[in-house]
Each structure stands twice: as C-alpha cells, then as structure tokens.
Design a protein around this nucleic acid. Structure first.
Length: 211
DNA sequence: GAACCGATTGCCT
DNA sequence: GGCAATCGGTTCG
C-alpha cells in the first residue's frame, strides 16, 4: 500500500520550528529527480532556530548560504557539510524570521531501487539513516536549495534535469522521543531532536537520558 | 590571507 | 574508537 502523497499546505510549515520538527516525524517525504520518484517516512528531525539558537546557521544573521532560512516557509534549504555531504532542511516560521528543520533520517518506502543505485551497499533500512545518506539516496544536492515544496512546483535545475520535493501526511509514531541534537557543541542541552523511538532507520539510537 | 572547524560518513585498527 | 576526506564560513592576525 502506497503512502499518502498529497502535499501538506504551506501553513503547516509557517509555524514554530520546534512544533513543526516534532510533527514532521511520521510524515512522508517525497523527492523526484531525473524522472525517478522516491519516498520515505521521516523518523528523525531537528529544529534550528534564529538568533536565539547558537547552533543554528542563522545564529549570526543572514548570509549568502543561509538566506533561504529567512524566507517564506515550505522551501528547501540545502547546504554542503564537511565539504562532501549535503543536508536537507525544510524552512519554517513566518517570512523574515529564520527557522528550519533538518531531516535526519527516513524509513525507505518508495523507489528503493533508485536509492540502492545511488548509495551502493547498505541494508535497506539504512539507506536514508543520516542527513548525508538521505540526500545521497534521494539525489539531493545544492541545486535543490531554495526549491519550494510541492508536487507541481518543479524547477528545471539543469536543461535535462527536473526536480521536485514535498511532504505528505503519514503514520504518527507510537513512541516519539526527544533529546539533544546530534553533533553540535553550542546549546547542546536543548531537546530539539525528535525521532520515532521504534524505528530501525535512525542515524543513531536515542540516548537514554532525556527520553 | 591563514588557520580552524563544522547540523557527516566510511574505512581503518 | 580513531581519523581522513574536502570546502566554505568564521575568526584572528
């Protein structure tokens, strides 16, 4: 049985970033590239705020890289990390206030053949377990930055390449875990990471503390 | 400008 | 568990 496909409205994203991050767990992320459509259930997310959040790219104001975080909600923010991986974020909040949710892991649902092809050897449950792996599995790169969410709002990234990405409803987790964000030093205590505690596709296990 | 480090991953011991 | 890969933003001189 196929997962829900109808896109969530922009107003879902134009809210408090922590609320959006929490409610995204269980939703379905769709991504189409080069005529191949993939989807997965979001099982792990993290909230990144504005100047109030030292761990956020927006902590020190607007730059060329983080500009989309300050724009309208329901837009994709993609950036290069460690010089070799991409991270997918979904912009939140009203226009003018920075905010985004990092999508850290998916349970693969649709297009597993394409994911396997892009990722090489990995168990199916681990194809999208981690922000970098997820982008690789779905074919997401810097060219997607600034793309509005939607199943019709495609953008010809290159003459022969057309991409689209959106989020649909899904199956809410039975046990939603919250805890500190992964791999950050500043504001490390804030419980801005959310995940489905029972998923086999997390980037890492929830730590006992705070769950 | 140079040095340092990051919202990561995969391969090494 | 340790560490290299590899680039851009930030900080410091």
């Amino acid at each position: 049985m196929l997962p829900p496909r109808r896109p969530l409205p922009r107003r879902f994203f134009a809210r408090d970033t922590v609320t959006v991050a929490r409610e995204l767990v269980g939703c379905t992320l769709w991504a189409a590239a080069g005529g191949r459509t993939c989807a997965g259930r979001i099982v792990e997310s993290e909230a990144y705020l504005d100047e109030r959040d030292p761990a956020s790219h927006a902590a020190r104001g607007r730059t060329e890289r983080n500009a989309v975080m300050f724009g309208p909600a329901a837009v994709v923010y993609v950036y290069l990390i460690y010089g070799l991986h991409y991270c997918l974020n979904l912009v939140t909040e009203a226009e003018g206030r920075a905010g985004a949710v990092l999508v850290r892991a998916l349970e693969p649902l649709v297009g597993l053949e394409s994911m396997r092809e892009r990722c090489g050897s990995a168990r199916d449950a681990g194809l999208c377990a981690g922000p970098g792996r997820l982008c690789r599995a779905l074919g997401i790169d810097l060219a997607w930055n600034g793309l509005p969410l939607g199943d019709r709002t495609s953008r010809p990234v290159q003459p022969d390449r057309d991409v689209r990405v959106w989020v649909a409803a899904g199956r809410a987790p039975a046990r939603l875990a919250a805890g500190p964000r992964v791999g950050i030093r500043h504001a490390a205590a804030r419980p801005f990471r959310f995940c489905d505690a029972d998923s086999a596709s997390l980037s890492r296990r929830p730590v006992a503390e705070g769950f």
